[in-house]
């Protein structure tokens, strides 16, 4: 068991090293710079709007860039190994196919963790920069409106309330929930791509199919409602088809709860844990199916 785990970790680390040395992360660096720069470009907005913008843009960018990394890196995992014949050298060693598969997937999850972490650091940097800008401009506003306002206790109280509001907006612990949910969605996307790549003959097929499933996953709520008889009138066949669809395809739409967090609405941790649990269970199913598919693949 431990030796099996060591082999999985060795393959995972190798996959991560490959991705890092292929300069995937330099794309993320560019992303970080663009994100920080955008705060400067939109500094004409009101401070509340600026912070909201950075939050929306930051989380959106983490999701988008993460999606691209998850999809591209997972889709080429197996085809590249086959093309370079490295898969033969690995599987000729005392390594089970399932260990190879889990190791490769671990590598992608590590890459996604690293990418999301770096992007989150850049995101936090942009937010703190906005906070500093907001506090600075608030103070300038007070100085311009009322000279010597510091001598008035009411004005000082008002100023402190304004500053606290800015800090609360920026240091919102719910943003951690948002990033965790984005990460879970990325790992699920990667799991889908892994399953498809176990039987696909090209990376393009994996990318296109995963993308289609991802899109359908966002519309799945509608399918489920129709299946459960809460939507428009449907025939038995339509209802059956939509039922199968809603069981097979993960519900990506549930993760749009991130938008609620960004809009400033409270999302309880229990709900976030439910979604993370859903992603975990779905991932186990995806990995099990991938293992079955890959076990009998001719190499």
């Amino acid at each position: 068991m431990i030796s099996s785990l060591k082999r999985i970790i060795a393959i995972g680390r190798n996959t991560l090293t490959e991705a890092v040395r292929q300069r995937v992360l330099s794309v993320l660096l560019i992303f970080g710079l663009v994100m920080v720069a955008c705060s400067v470009f939109f500094s004409k907005l009101l401070i509340d709007e600026q912070i909201k913008f950075v939050k929306d843009f930051g989380c959106g960018a983490i999701g988008l860039f993460g999606f691209a990394i998850a999809l591209l890196s997972t889709a080429q995992l197996i085809p590249q190994e086959l093309h370079n014949r490295t898969i033969y050298t690995i599987l000729a060693k005392p390594v089970r196919r399932v260990e190879f598969l889990l190791g490769k997937f671990l590598g992608v999850v590590l890459l996604l963790s690293l990418s999301v972490m770096l992007m989150s650091i850049a995101f936090a940097g942009a937010l703190y920069w906005q906070e500093w800008q907001g506090i600075d401009s608030t103070q300038i506003g007070y100085d311009q409106r009322t000279p010597h306002w510091q001598s008035s206790p009411d004005m000082v109280n008002m100023y402190q309330r304004d500053i606290l509001e800015i800090e609360n907006q920026v240091r919102d612990p719910q943003l951690i929930e948002a990033i965790l949910l984005i990460f879970a969605k990325l790992v699920m996307t990667s799991g889908i791509a892994l399953l498809i790549s176990t039987f696909a003959t090209s990376s393009i097929f994996t990318i296109v199919t995963t993308f289609m499933i991802y899109l359908i996953g966002h519309m799945e709520t509608v399918a489920r409602q129709v299946w459960l008889g809460r939507g428009a009138e449907t025939t038995l066949y339509q209802s059956g088809f939509l039922g199968i669809l809603s069981l097979l395809i993960p519900d990506m739409n549930s993760f749009t709860i991130v938008d609620e967090i960004l809009a400033g609405n409270r999302v309880p941790w229990a709900h976030t844990f439910n979604l993370l649990g859903y992603a975990g269970v779905y991932l186990i199913v995806l990995l099990a199916l991938s293992e079955i598919s890959f076990r009998y693949r001719e190499l």
């Binding site: 190798n14 090293t17 490959e18 040395r21 292929q22 093309h83 370079n84 014949r85 490295t86 050298t89």
Partner: peptide, 8 residues
């Protein structure tokens, strides 16, 4: 004709 991992 093995290629191995070119980055290692």
């Amino acid at each position: 004709n093995p290629y191995f991992y070119a980055f290692l």
